[in-house]
Amino acid sequence: MTQTTAVLGTRALNRATLDRQLLLRRAPLSAKAAVEHLVGLQAQEVKPPYYALAARLDGFRPEQLSALLADRAAVRTVTLRSTIHLHTADDSLTLRPLVQPTRDRELRIFRKGLTGVDLERLAGIARELVEAEPRTMRQLREALSCEWPDADPQALAVAARCTLPLVQITPRGLWGRSAQVRLTTAEHWLGRPGEPAATADSAVLRYLGAFGPASVKDMQTWSGLTRMRPVFERLRPRLITFRDEAGTELFDLPDAPRPDPETEAPPRFLPEFDNLLLSHADRARVVPPAHHGRTWQVNTFHCPLLVDGFLAGVWRLLDDALVVEPFRTLTRTERDQVTEEGARVLRVLHEGASYDVRFGTVLP
């Protein structure tokens, strides 16, 4: 007998993903537990992780995340997709070696500027430099150029970043107290040796727990890793499968939540580069086709607004207001809910500031 694979429509995928992402209802989790569950937070800039948790956690205060960084229970480092993420200390030590292939690919881009450079020797010298004293990228670049004056200085600094597990030390990343980026190794900052890489199997299971149901290409988009099909095939007996409306096979954890597609999804203000919008090859589960690309302009990624679980506008703090620009006409109820959620964000992250919530123009 042929078994028919169930099809998950766009709304079903949307609600399942929002539930895993703690966006259907705010979760009573600690900041550390949430960062661990989400397998890190995108953190190119200082504020986005704070906005990400404010949207997801009940009772969150920015001081909670700052304390994790100050206590070295969490770090900012380059991992998934070769971008800066905020991870728990434990995850930073195991995920960084797992995604080393992505750093190796990045390094190949700069190979012409590294002619004649012994990368193993470079890694050793760079380690000595940043462990003796945390360095900015400029300081690291200048110091390495003394050893290899004929090499491209930028390529030398990139090589150090790709071959070593560098972390940004505090006060960088602290709410209201940030500073320029200074780097040292994860081992030196955390006071413990490196650990074996997380297994690809465990990474897939954690990804599905936070972003599923998902395809092989989705997981590769999230991680930056390639050739993950054999891992999914090895895990197939432990997983269940679906199809999306285009026929793509989706994998999931058997006991993971998959809410009714009509479950209410309250408005949420997300930060730029939130992983919700960057962790699937097919973003239709969150981004309606009509709005594809509307959060990007040149090299700027605007803060997304979710209404009914889907991208419905952008927002920005401008002067004395949190300005919301919807992509479609909102109902009166939706506008009221967006205004209420915006006011909540301001209370949580900007207590005492005199911001209003207004509807207007954000995109130039």
Results as ranks from 00 to 15, higher is better:
V7R: 14
R15H: 01
A16L: 02
D19T: 15
R25Q: 13
A27P: 03
P28V: 10
S30C: 04
A31S: 11
A34Y: 09
E36H: 14
Q42M: 00
Q64Y: 06
L65N: 08
D71T: 13
V75P: 04
V75F: 08
R76E: 02
I84L: 15
A89D: 15
P101C: 07
R108G: 02
L114N: 11
G124D: 10
E128K: 11
E131R: 10
E133T: 13
P134F: 03
Q139S: 11
A143K: 08
L144E: 06
C146Y: 04
A155E: 03
R161L: 09
P165M: 07
Q168K: 12
Q180E: 09
A198K: 15
T199M: 02
S202V: 12
R206P: 04
G209N: 12
P213G: 12
S215L: 00
K217Y: 05
D218K: 04
Q220D: 05
T226H: 00
M228D: 01
R229K: 14
V231E: 00
E233T: 14
T241I: 11
R243F: 06
E245C: 01
F251W: 14
D252Q: 10
D255P: 07
P261I: 12
T263L: 12
R268F: 02
F269P: 02
S279C: 10
R283G: 09
R283M: 11
R285M: 08
G293N: 10
R294F: 03
R294N: 06
Q297K: 14
V298H: 15
V298D: 15
G309E: 00
F310D: 12
V314D: 11
L318C: 10
L318R: 13
D320E: 14
L322E: 09
R332H: 06
T339I: 04
E341W: 08
A343R: 15
A353Y: 15
D356Q: 15
F359Q: 09
F359K: 14
T361H: 14
V362A: 08
L363P: 06
